[in-house]
Computed example of a mutant assay.
Amino acid sequence: MLKLRNGVSLVALALMAGGGMARADEAADLAAMIAAAKAEPPITVYAVTGKIVETAEAFSKAYGLQATGKKVNESEQAELMIREAQAGNVVGDLAVAGDLAVVMGQLIPEGIAETWLPPDLAGSIAPGAQNPLIIVSDPHVWAYNTAVYDKCPVSNVWELTEPKWHGKVAMMDPLAKPAYADWFNQLETHHDAEMAAAYAAQYGKAFDASAGSATAAWVAALAANAPLISDSTGVSDAVGAPGQTEPFFGIMSTAKFRDNLTGKTALGICAGLQPFEGWLYPGVGALATGSKSPNAARLFVHFLLSAEGIAPQTIDGKVSSNTSLPPDPNEVSGVGTHLDKLMVYDTATAVEDLDRRQDWQDAWRLALSK
Rank of each mutant, 00 (worst) to 15 (best):
Gly334Val: 06
Glu194Lys: 12
Ser321Val: 07
Asp192Met: 05
Pro118Asn: 07
Trp183Gly: 05
Val91Thr: 15
Ser213Met: 06
Asn6Cys: 11
Arg298Pro: 05
Trp183Ser: 03
Gln358Phe: 07
Asp355Pro: 08
Pro294Lys: 01
Pro153Ala: 04
Lys70Val: 15
Gln358Cys: 04
Tyr180Arg: 12
Met33Leu: 13
Asp231Phe: 04
Val91Pro: 00
Val301Ser: 04
Thr337Ile: 05
Lys205Cys: 04
Glu159Gly: 04
His166Asn: 15
Pro42Arg: 01
Tyr281Glu: 10
Ala31Asp: 15
Met21Phe: 13
Ala221Glu: 09
Thr245Gly: 07
Asp138Gln: 04
Val332Glu: 02
Ile112Glu: 06
Ala176Cys: 02
Asn322Gly: 02
Gly250Ser: 01
Trp360Arg: 11
Val90Asn: 06
Ile135Gln: 09
Val319Thr: 13
Ala147Cys: 04
Gly19Arg: 00
Gly20Thr: 13
Val72Pro: 12
Ala67Pro: 14
Leu80Glu: 15
Lys318Ile: 00
Phe184Glu: 05
Glu159Val: 10
Met33Gly: 09
Trp218Asp: 11
Met171His: 14
Lys151Phe: 12
Ala78Asp: 12
Met16Gln: 12
Ala37Glu: 08
Asp362Thr: 14
Leu160Met: 13
Ala32Leu: 08
Ala78Trp: 05
Pro127Arg: 05
Val154Arg: 03
Asp231Val: 02
Gly167Phe: 04
Glu79Cys: 03
Asn156Val: 01
Ala35Ser: 12
Gly212Trp: 02
Thr233Glu: 14
Leu107Gly: 11
Leu261Ile: 14
Ala197Asp: 14
Asp120Pro: 08
Pro174Lys: 13
Arg356Pro: 11
Asn73Cys: 01
Pro326Tyr: 13
Thr314His: 03
Met171Gln: 13
Gly92Val: 03
Asp99Val: 07
Pro282Arg: 15
Asp25Glu: 10
Glu74Arg: 15
Pro242Cys: 07
Ala367Lys: 11
Ala47Val: 00
Gly111Glu: 10
Ala67Asn: 09
Arg23Ile: 08
Pro312Tyr: 15
Ala286Phe: 07
Asp359Leu: 13
Tyr46Ala: 12
Thr323Val: 08
Ala97Ser: 13
Met195Ser: 04
Thr146Asn: 05
Gln77Tyr: 12
Ala36Thr: 04
Gly128Thr: 01
Ala28Tyr: 03
Thr233Ile: 14
Gln358Lys: 15
His140Tyr: 00
Ala37His: 03
Glu114Phe: 05
Gly98Val: 10
Gln361Glu: 10
Phe248Asp: 05
Ala363Cys: 02
Ser75His: 12
Met21Val: 12
Ala255Cys: 09
Ala216Arg: 14
Leu273Trp: 01
Pro127Phe: 00
